[in-house]
Design a protein around this nucleic acid. Structure first.
Lengths: 206, 206
DNA sequence: GTCTATACTACGATAGAC
DNA sequence: GTCTATCGTAGTATAGAC
């Protein structure tokens, strides 16, 4: 399974070093194969990069998408149910951000956020849009008084709190004077995120 | 002012391409000087990188730090005053994130968050810690019922909403089906951030 | 399918002229 | 202080053996 190894190594290397910084020499060497295997399996460096984006989107989608339909359905029952469903989505996002495995995905994605290429389209269409659509759907039940743009702004900012756990990881660790986010700290952050989100979502209409 | 030009170009190139991806050849060419000027002024590629981090920290500190002492003082008057001071800090952060000039800073900083080097120390000690200390100080007035770790978690997550405006820029634009964040959208996002923060900070104790 | 060998370009650093 | 010239290394891509 040379192509699988190349894909895994590519995600790590592209995430750490960026497209230009990563070298196909290193990727193939770490994967235990020859450089020319990249050309054979993916057509070249760029093909490998896009394949890595697809693989990341599929991996995250596998973790999140299956639960979205259920939450959308259960959230239609009442406003409180929609709030709970939104809290569940946010906590799932937070858990993904806290997973050690998400480190390389996150680096890759955050790079693409700063300078989107075709790879960002694949990430957005593959996962992000699905999560956001589910959130916006639930937001219509929670915030019928908001217009569409306000609901989008609210959902975006709520996601920001979860994203902080990855995108601002180094700062989070400094704030807590910790080397890493261990399990008790992770639970504290998730609980606080829930408190914040509950407060924002259940506040009576302005 | 060759060294100034090199510094500016370095921030842009390191931000876009990362340390490994950026080339001293390009940086010197874009700056209109010779490669060897980098060796002369900064000792080499790494010295230039650290100098770029210092320059970013100083630039952001110049925008934020002067207001922090005043807000800390005014926030000591009452709980409501502390809430208002915190809202002012968050809005300033949001404005920094929304500034077009912050694009290159942000890329540089976000890269360092994912893989901190000595440059992150300079960024954290130069600006981030000062903003966070001011926020935590105000939080003791707003949330005397929280323990220190909960206050740190709350402050961190609040900052996350502002950070989303930069770190998740591409996703924000997609959500609003916009090419860029124009002035009306920026105001909408800032207003929503204020609503969220106000809701979180003024909620009665749990 | 996977390898070795190689062609060609670009990298960072430095020596030395001015 | 800034330049040109050059060294040694490492980059991607490709041709061709097996």
């Amino acid at each position: 399974m040379v192509s699988k190894a190349l894909l895994q190594t590519a995600i790590e290397q592209f995430g750490r070093l960026g497209f230009e910084g990563a070298s196909t020499r290193d990727i193939s060497r770490i994967s235990g194969t020859a450089m020319s295997s990249i050309t054979y399996h993916f057509g070249g460096k760029e093909g490998l990069y896009l394949a890595a984006a697809d693989h990341i989107a599929e991996s995250i989608a596998a973790l999140l998408v299956p639960m979205l339909d259920g939450l959308r359905a259960s959230g239609a029952a009442s406003r409180d149910a929609a709030v709970e469903a939104l809290l569940a989505i946010l906590d799932s996002l937070a858990q993904v951000m806290l997973r050690p495995e998400s480190e390389h995905w996150a680096r890759f994605i955050i790079r693409e956020q700063q300078a989107p290429t075709e790879a960002f389209d694949r990430l957005y269409n593959g996962v992000m849009s699905k999560v956001l659509e589910a959130m916006l759907d639930l937001m219509t039940h929670v915030r019928p008084d908001y217009d569409d743009r306000h609901r989008r702004a609210a959902a975006t900012l709520l996601v920001g709190q979860a994203m902080m756990l990855r995108a601002g990881r180094a700062a989070v660790c400094r704030v807590f004077r910790a080397e890493t986010i261990d399990e008790p700290l992770a639970q504290l952050l998730r609980a606080q995120l829930r408190t914040h989100a509950l407060c924002i979502l259940s506040e009576k209409s302005a």
